[in-house]
Amino acid sequence: MTHQALELIRLNNLQLVAKIVSDAMWTGLHWGKRIGSGTEFEQYKHYEPGDDPKMIDWKLFARSNRYQVRESNIESHLNIRFLVDGSGSMNYKEDGVSRLDYVKILAASLAYLGHQQNDKMSLFVLQNGQMEMKVPAKGHSFQRILVQLESLKAEGKWGNMDPDLPELNSRQKELIFFFSDLFQIDEEWIRLIQSMVSNKREIIIFQILGDHELDFSLKKGMYRFEDLESNRTVELQTKQVATAYRKSISHFLTDLDRELNLPRVRLFRCRLSDPVENILLAYLTSKQKKS
């Protein structure tokens, strides 16, 4: 069963939504437990040939004269960063679903998955040429990410500049989820992504676009297009400009595909009408690019 973004938004509870989406996604997929050595104790089991003798709990052997292997869940040392574009264009709304709402659900669902495997997670919002850390990579980050996501408002613009972002200079192994529409004045988003590329970093970009933005499928007639990031308005007959628009957007998208064809960078383009779990599934089942 798939869920339209609108239904999920109406729930108005990101935690629940994240769970629903993730659960729906796992329908039919086997979720095997990953057991190994870790700090947190999970269970004892009898030693069997093949088990690492190092894992035998010798203290227990001293007490009970039994070879028991101490097990715990494997701890992930993956550092996940959620980068959310907070510019005004994220407020673009189609059929009641705004781009930001969609991003919130998508990010929350990913965070839920990360939470389940104990990943370190942090949340950053890109706004007005600055990258603001909303949630640091500490404990209980899942709840904090949800809280921050719920209160997130998109406004202003990213601006055509290349800010120096020290947060991105870490040498840690990390996974970056970047949510944006990638609408740019020059090539500022592309430059930002290119600057983030590193050996230790995997970058997953979710480009979320509306149907009208992709196909210009507005009904015939006069429309007043109001820029979400400035006060500029343009009044146009859709019929007059449809062909030119479609041409330039497809040009933009092919350019983007070409520019972002980088090692360890994956771009997922989704429509606001796509069910969120489909996007998640597309990401999780896609093959990791060989670097």
């Binding site: 407020n91 673009y92 007639g221 109001e226």
Partner: peptide
């Protein structure tokens, strides 16, 4: 003079830059 249907739009860059004169 009737105003067109209002649409909040993000992909402004791809709209052709035509007749601003007749805007208002």
């Amino acid at each position: 003079q009737k105003r067109g249907k209002q649409v909040a739009w993000a992909a402004m860059k791809f709209l052709p830059q035509v007749d601003h004169l007749r805007s208002r």
